[in-house]
Nucleic acid binder design. Structure first.
Lengths: 254, 254
DNA sequence: TTAACGATTAACAAATTGTTAATTAAAACG
DNA sequence: CGTTTTAATTAACAATTTGTTAATCGTTAA
């Protein structure tokens, strides 16, 4: 292609893979949930055996986008390679294109986030570009010496997760198909700080009226689970309803 | 740079420039407001005198990002060239990177939107890359034969404007420093359809309590304006308060 | 039998919303 | 001047929703 303009030296797709892990808290008790991010430790050598850039540092999984695909498709491909999972809803949230962000040259990163079940990350595997692949809490992750500008990408990703958790039914992707209210509450509280969620009486009164979740029935009777409590708890699932909120309509926090 | 991966043929920054025009509706009446988007008509020839791609079609203003700048900076530069205005809050909202979107090759577009005052677009000017530059209503714009994939970019931009208008204080950027409630209401109604806004009694009762706007005082007395009504109307301004809403807390629309 | 405890439900005051009607203030008209 | 007109509020009241504290319920385990 003839072009008076200079062209980038690379176009990469990075993915912030989030999950919420559940740690058992004893029988008949809701487990302790916490938000984790999956990072890779960059290989010492690249594909061709040359010393790799930012080798040994922890980084977001990702890689170069090929000319026959979009960054979203590259993200799907990479995610499949590293976790074996596909079909997840990957969401673009930003572009990182500071000219100095990569010493190799002018390399543009298209950043995405995705939510995975804890179980789907069980069989994660290192590929040629990683020597290790682990889950970190947000505090741990942000304390690491991360590659490139991945620290600010992770900061931003977390902000988008919080925003989408509050404004959309994102929580759905952190939960199994059917769940009890304390599970939903636990997921929300890993990233949101709101008395309307943390106060049991308020949350348990409001939640069943939310138009985007519905009680699960079995033979016309409410289906319950005692997985996390002695008292059987009603199971719910998300509906297809897409909630809309507005600062000009609703009561505001703080 | 040595790299086994193929590199893009170009990185562009496109800007959806929105404004809300006010058409007088008679003395002492709130003007009729409507959302407009500024588009350019692409030049017949490019910078070097060669036939231009997508020549004569209407398109979003924008251009190639240079290796020493970010797409945001390129957007600022282009916006300055074409409108003479700077200092506006330009917001990234998406990346368009379908391999087939530009016949010249693998060209990635970083898309932004920006809100400009009607007045700041008065002295817009065509530059070498445009033979015309005009404001269009959204219906007009979406009915044009637009260049590249700009139709879907504009569709998306409009969606983000609506979302941000409902969830943030975006309306601020469409309004003068101080304004009366009917102006705010008019701006909101150009993109939102909500009885809480369109019903006068509800809107005029709620608006003064919103934490992100405050009444303007003069010598300790409420400052009023009769620009749009015989009855002097209270002037307001936006504060720095950033509202937060949540689907788990607030009443949801139909 | 009873203690424990998560999962609700109850109860009631306070705040917010939906809705319809009234009031106010200045300009324009006769 | 008094009246009409029109936008800008304010009032009023029922219906909902929220904040908060307390009670109940349904199992398991001692």
């Amino acid at each position: 292609m003839k072009n008076k303009f200079q062209t980038p030296d690379g176009y990469t797709s990075d993915i912030a893979v989030f999950t919420i892990t559940s740690e058992s808290n004893g029988e008949y008790r809701p487990p302790i949930k916490s938000l984790k991010i999956m990072l890779i430790k960059r290989s010492e050598q690249d594909h061709e055996g040359n010393p790799n850039i930012e080798a040994g540092k922890w980084a977001l999984p990702g890689g170069f986008v090929q000319p026959y695909e979009t960054a979203l498709q590259a993200a799907e491909r990479k995610l499949k390679e590293e976790t074996g999972v596909d079909g997840l809803r990957i969401k673009h949230f930003g572009v990182y294109d500071s000219p100095s962000r990569d010493k190799r040259g002018w390399i543009i990163s298209n950043a995405h986030y995705v939510i995975a079940n804890e179980s789907s990350l069980k069989n994660r595997k290192t590929t040629y570009d990683a020597q290790d692949i682990q889950l970190f809490s947000m505090e741990e992750a942000l304390a690491l010496n991360l590659a490139f500008d991945h620290r600010s990408i992770i900061d931003d990703a977390l902000w988008f997760i919080k925003k989408d958790m509050a404004l959309t039914t994102l929580a759905k992707h952190f939960l199994p198909e059917v769940f009890v209210l304390s599970e939903l509450q636990g997921v929300l509280l890993t990233v949101l700080d709101d008395p309307a969620i943390s106060t049991d009486a308020a949350f348990f009164r409001k939640a069943p009226t939310l138009p985007f979740i519905e009680a699960v029935l079995e033979n016309g009777k409410p289906k319950k689970s005692n997985a996390y409590s002695k008292t059987p708890a009603q199971l719910y699932r998300f509906t297809d309803y897409q909630p809309i909120v507005s600062v000009y309509r609703n009561k505001l926090k703080g």
